[in-house]
Design a binder for these strands. Structure first.
Lengths: 245, 245
DNA sequence: TAGTGGTCTAGACCACAAA
DNA sequence: TTGTGGTCTAGACCACTAA
């Protein structure tokens, strides 16, 4: 299991250890949205650190939207908001659940290809390099929602084509079999017209508008790992966003 | 001018006062990107507060992307990144400058209208209420970039139609004449097909795709103030976004 | 070696919510 | 009145950078 106390001999700062401890409790469902977490005084006792250190950790969790504080009352687990959907990396499955759909996947294509020029630059690899291309049709309540094209550097994930991409989430495969975690990403959002070849897959008209997204995802080591193109049906999919001053 | 010291008798916490002081120096260009700001020890001396208080302020500014720290070296003014464009409220003018265009504006319409049903809900006002509608064509390097429709509650800004919306930024008018600051917003991003009536204004074909955005902006008091629709030419405008785990 | 930011402590007083 | 989070202080030691 996950450690539940702070190792004072570790090189890791206390606050980072405590952060991981509390974060795991939230992620693993030990605490659920609406729950009050132990007051600062108890956390101080439990983990044998000062109030400033506890507050440093809680500040981070508040900033990340995991918890919220109410003066005089306590600190609570936050309810996931739509805001997080646009700034956190989430899977298609998770996204659809948040939107109240039942997700589904059909694999349209899975093959090894030579790197196209436009993708080579995005993934910072030479043109000769082999890529794995995985093309999937995504369904929501059984109806087409989007087409996704994933491109992975073959060298990073040999034999990945042995997996069934309709059943097993790609991120889970990368993490379990290759030790690669996708921790950050950059993406561009555009509106485009269908170029014709997706009309059948998405069940849309020849001229329909699509919400189009290109994303480069980076591993925990900071290297680009995946290039992703998503074509969303504009009549079914919208993005949501919160802004501040 | 803006106060440059902390009022220890004020009800405002020190850290909020110091935050405003430093933020103004950045915004007004007193410090420019790449500049090193005074070390914590100097800020402590200058403003007569403890190190924790100084660091509390710097933490906020780091979080908001205004500054970055380098251990052993110093704290520096950050260069604005594209990331801020999608999570901060910025004006069209500012946006175009960041993208390397020269902005321009033509006013297409400015009038008082009764509230349409769909907007009444967004602005949380009754159907009978009067709205000010301002429709503007936005240009980048002289070519059409987008059409914006702003809707304001007339009661909040009487006589606003006397202004020249091609010359004076709307946000500046609201702040100077009516004391209204737009501090947060929620928006939805979609892809749509032109409905025909914008083809002339945007110089696009009858079936072109548009990036479409609907935004509700809130004042410092938390009330919805403006409803905004923007129709971007999809061939000229894209959104950029960074994600994390 | 001197100066910077990074982490941590122990203690204080305040403001707010609920009993 | 009690317990919660909000703000603040003074001091300490460490890790990194540059001279």
């Amino acid at each position: 299991m996950f450690p539940d106390s702070i190792n004072k001999l570790s090189k890791l700062p206390y606050y980072q250890q405590l952060y991981e401890i509390l974060r795991q409790k939230i992620i693993l469902g030990d605490w659920v949205p609406g729950d009050m977490i132990p007051p600062e005084s108890v956390l101080i006792e439990t983990y044998q650190v000062s109030r400033n250190t506890v507050r440093q950790v809680l500040d981070i969790l508040v900033n990340e939207g995991y918890i919220y504080r109410q003066r005089g009352k306590g600190t609570y687990i936050a309810h996931p908001t739509l805001e997080q959907t646009t700034s956190r990396i989430i899977s298609f499955t998770e996204d659809m659940h948040q939107r109240g759909f039942i997700p589904g996947t059909n694999v349209l294509d899975a093959a090894v290809i030579p790197t196209p020029e436009d993708i080579a630059g995005q993934l910072q690899i030479p043109l000769g390099e082999e890529l794995v291309k995985i093309k999937r049709l995504r369904l929501a309540d059984g109806e087409p929602m989007s087409v996704e094209e994933s491109y992975l550097v073959h060298r990073n994930c040999p034999n990945i084509l042995d997996h069934n991409f309709a059943e097993e989430p790609l991120r889970q495969i990368l993490e379990k079999d290759y030790g690669i975690r996708l921790v950050s990403a950059k993406q561009v959002i555009k509106a485009i017209q269908t170029s014709g070849n997706l009309t059948d897959e998405l069940k849309i008209s020849k001229q329909a508008a699509l919400l189009f997204l290109e994303r480069v995802s980076f591993s925990q080591n900071g290297f680009p790992v995946e290039f992703l193109r998503i074509f969303y049906r504009a009549d079914r999919y919208t993005l949501y966003n919160e802004l501040h001053d």
